[in-house]
Amino acid sequence: MTSNAVALSERRLGKFGDKYFAGRPQQVLLRNWLSFKSSAWIAVVSGFLEPVLYLLSFGYGIGELVGNISTPGGDISYAAYIAPGLLATSAMNGAMLDSTWNVFFKLNESRLYKAMLATSLGPLDVALGEIAWALMRGGLYATAFTIIIAGLGLVTSWWAILAIPAAIIVAFGFASFGMAITSFMKSHHQMNFFEIFLLPMFLFSGAFYPLTVFPGWAQAIIKALPLRQAIELVTRAMNGEFGINILVNFTYFLVMICVGLFFTTKRLNALFMK
């Protein structure tokens, strides 16, 4: 009488959060992989291209006018100066692409989450699976970007390899937060909020110039923004600066990840278990 599916659903019974988590977020990842396999690869490439184009045009174009930049570690080219910031941006873009518009579509148009949550999966499985997928894209972009800047001779030390785990943490934070905010969005209209927020954040977070050009109060605001935190985390990891500062950046993302996951799960539950 008891079917296979029932026995499987009873495994997590009595464990923490058993109503919200079946322990199968990987099936949500698998679903995305099946869908991705047959989808247009061009969408993946286009999302990745943006920071690469910035690197080439600004790094080598404006870099020609700017000349070398002096840093505590010595003089570096302008392209090398902006590379970590663009790497962080690349991770952010990758994560945000999946966790915002794609999630919005699955929530509101394709009713995919509704189908998932009619099975024995829980909202935390869906949240974790989707966020993991988004962060994988962010991680992929960041890895490819690291390879490109290494190929262009813009990295000077082996610490640069740490840019990849740093970028994955960044992507995790943005994916988690992005999905949480998306789950509260009711229309395409509201989704434009992300563009309004992301573009200025990209331009003013000091990827292209030091924050010291701004007055103190503006610097304080920028430092509180996630992209600034991401740039600092990636730059410090690439330079091998391990101190209290990088710990603060890391903690910032840890909080972002947890808060995002919490609200995404709560919201999915409210939307589909009402």
């Binding site: 659903s9 199968r24 099936q27 679903r31 869908s35 394709s110 009713r111 189908a115 099975t119 024995s120």
Partner: peptide, 21 residues
């Protein structure tokens, strides 16, 4: 609420996976 991005048999397959089968 079928998964429009997947094929017919993939739809059945992934749905079973959601149950952990």
């Amino acid at each position: 609420n079928l998964d429009n991005e997947l094929t017919v048999s993939e739809n059945i397959f992934i749905y079973g996976r959601y149950f952990g089968l």
